[in-house]
Amino acid sequence: MRECEKVLDYFNDELSEGEKEQFERHLESCEDCREEIEELRSLTDDLPFSSEPVDPPEGMKDRVLGAVFAEEETEEKSQEEENVVPLEQHLEQDSSREVDRPTRSNRQAWLMRGLAAALVASLVGNVFALTGGEETVSEPPAVESTDQVNQRVSLEGESTPARASAAMIRQNGSQLLTLQAEQLEPLQGDEVYQVWLLNGDEPYRAGTFVANQNGEGAVAFSMDQLPSELDWDAVAISKEPNAQSQTPQGEVILSSSL
């Protein structure tokens, strides 16, 4: 096919990458083709307006914009050392769901009080609940089957139906904290769920995540980023106004002693 015959297929993006490049080089020297394309553009300009109005389905705006802003979140966060990981449908590590729920210890009450002192009411401009789901950019690190689970706990909270389980896994000489949560409340705006590990009263950031539209979230955090000499007393999840909190600014919703 002569290059000038490819105008329609170029307009409809039907050319292969190679053909497209070749045609674009041709365009530089062929005024007729440039004019034809411009003419096609201007002649078809009004055609979209012939569409019969159809009402979009209920909740589409929230879903679409939720996904759009979630996209931004994941892109921004992937620049940082920690990952904000919307839960994929199929997570490995399903075994951690089989844990029996341990009895709640006294430590829990202490923990809730201790962190409550640091709380600040957290509400930023309501934008949209993040829906996460399919728009995942970063994947949780793959975990080899030879990993060894050192410790596993279930996290509970007083005022939420949400539940989570956390496990510390030894992988190739490194410690990994994995955590899965379900029945989480939807987040607003820039809010995130932040995981904390506590050494005494001192909280350390241990992963950030958002909930998908089913209220599920998960995180895999490399504990190599934390001081190795510390013993961890507890693990907790708080809702934070954004992913930058260095200490808990929001409500602690779930926790467990270790």
């Binding site: 569409s51 159809v54 009402d55």
Partner: peptide, 24 residues
């Protein structure tokens, strides 16, 4: 633009679920 684009994609594809995906 929600309604125009949604209606337009339905004209292009006559598929509602696809229209939402396209808008996203």
């Amino acid at each position: 633009y929600e309604k125009l684009l949604y209606s337009f994609v339905i004209k292009l594809s006559s598929d509602h679920s696809l229209a939402e995906e396209v808008l996203q």
